[in-house]
Design a protein around this nucleic acid. Structure first.
Lengths: 232, 232
DNA sequence: AGCCCACTGTGGACAGACCACACCACGTAC
DNA sequence: GTACGTGGTGTGGTCTGTCCACAGTGGGCT
């Protein structure tokens, strides 16, 4: 086993054992190297992997916040992995789209089936209102769109699904932007998307799970089709 | 932007542009470092990340096969990310289980709906036969079980789903093993699992999508419940 | 009392070196 | 002529040492 893998395994043990919890800091690179009897570059390689996976965040400087802090951003690692494989041509974009439809439609269905305070939908309604403004730029619209969809997915209550969706969205973000710029009439498309969004949020609000799932599926498939990203 | 991130971006560009395809080799670390005007450790950190994501495989020595070879193992990166986040306590195992049920049941449904040569099921039937042997060890049984489930998922035709399922299985492998050893009577459980497996494969063979999905869902949920891994 | 600045601990980056390894081609022995 | 052994060569793996940039912190100066 290579040195950085040993380091990684040790850190993973610590994470599993609760030695370090989110928000806390790993020992300094030099300290970790000495403690494990390895060189600093080896420790750095392990930390790089943890960083790429969204397990830690590193920062230079001194005081709290500096060093390698344990965070919980599952979406970062999953997103990077998906993005790289899409880039290398291993994963077809169409598979990403199909998977997104499946996961998100189910997440929205779960959301509608759960009981929650109606106030939980307020942030989403804020987004809806902002996106409905005429003359909203494409980039801002897509950013809000992402927040809205992730917010809906979060209501589903499955953190892994939320992370995968977030990662997939990031992985195909450039394709989505390109596709959105290529639609025939963006204002018309935007208006339609807004109306569909409202329909989904309403269905969730009245806990109509089947309808929420159906609308979500149609919404996502429709957009990707219009943007020329789906074979289906 | 940090140096290793620049290197990573450059390599990602090359992957997207088709400069390197799966099976081909990246330039040597020293050559890459000189070409990009950075130090070798920076290149190494970038390659480490690619390796952790399942994009490349590194090997020492000389000749073909040595160096950093581009591979396509999306499951590796996704699996590592999921495993690490489960270890750090960010992702509940129950979410992993729920996601697996959703993805795999749908993959099997897709498999049943597709048309394929019945011979494609032969490898799965081989696994079924092997697992039915009395006295089959738990570890070997679980390994075959994984192959069987992945084979079914592969028939669904969505590579991302297949990768996610493979990764999740790897991420919770230790939990599954522990759970399997804890069941009341392993031979009885194994026999039941075998029967359920046959039912699923049969349903796929006769293209009964709804039944295949239902059986898969019940099979996975039942096992995790028996192994004490599911709250549901 | 308030401000400034040096100190200190942190990650970021680099240069250089040595090792282990695996292939490959050359040369030798049969 | 063939088979075997052996050194050459290119590769990643690892370590050591060094310097830099950065950010907080505390003491000293104004």
């Amino acid at each position: 086993m290579r040195t950085h893998e040993r380091v990684l395994a040790r850190i993973e043990e610590g994470l599993a054992a609760g030695t370090w919890s989110p928000g806390e800091r790993l020992p300094a690179e030099r300290a970790l190297a000495e403690e494990l009897g390895v060189s600093r570059p080896s420790v750095r390689e392990a930390i790089r992997i943890l960083e790429a996976m969204g397990i830690v965040r590193t920062a230079v400087g001194s005081g709290p916040g500096a060093g390698a802090t344990v965070i919980d951003r599952p979406a970062a690692g999953l997103g990077a992995a998906v993005r790289l494989h899409v880039a290398s041509g291993t994963l077809p974009v169409s598979d990403v789209v199909r998977t997104r439809v499946l996961l998100e439609a189910n997440a929205v269905r779960d959301a509608a089936e759960r009981s929650f305070d109606d106030a939980a939908l307020d942030p989403l309604r804020e987004l809806l209102k902002a996106m409905a403004e005429p003359g909203f730029g494409i980039d801002e619209f897509l950013a809000h769109d992402q927040d809205l969809h992730l917010g809906l997915a979060r209501l589903g209550g499955n953190q892994l699904v939320e992370a995968i969706l977030s990662g997939m969205r990031a992985a195909v973000a450039s394709y989505v932007t390109t596709g959105a710029r290529a639609v025939e009439s963006w204002p018309r498309t935007a208006a339609r998307l807004c109306a569909e969004h409202e329909g989904i949020v309403d269905a969730v609000a009245r806990h109509d799970a089947a309808e929420a799932e159906r609308l979500t599926r149609a919404h996502i498939e429709g957009f990707y089709r219009e943007a020329g990203l789906a074979q289906a």
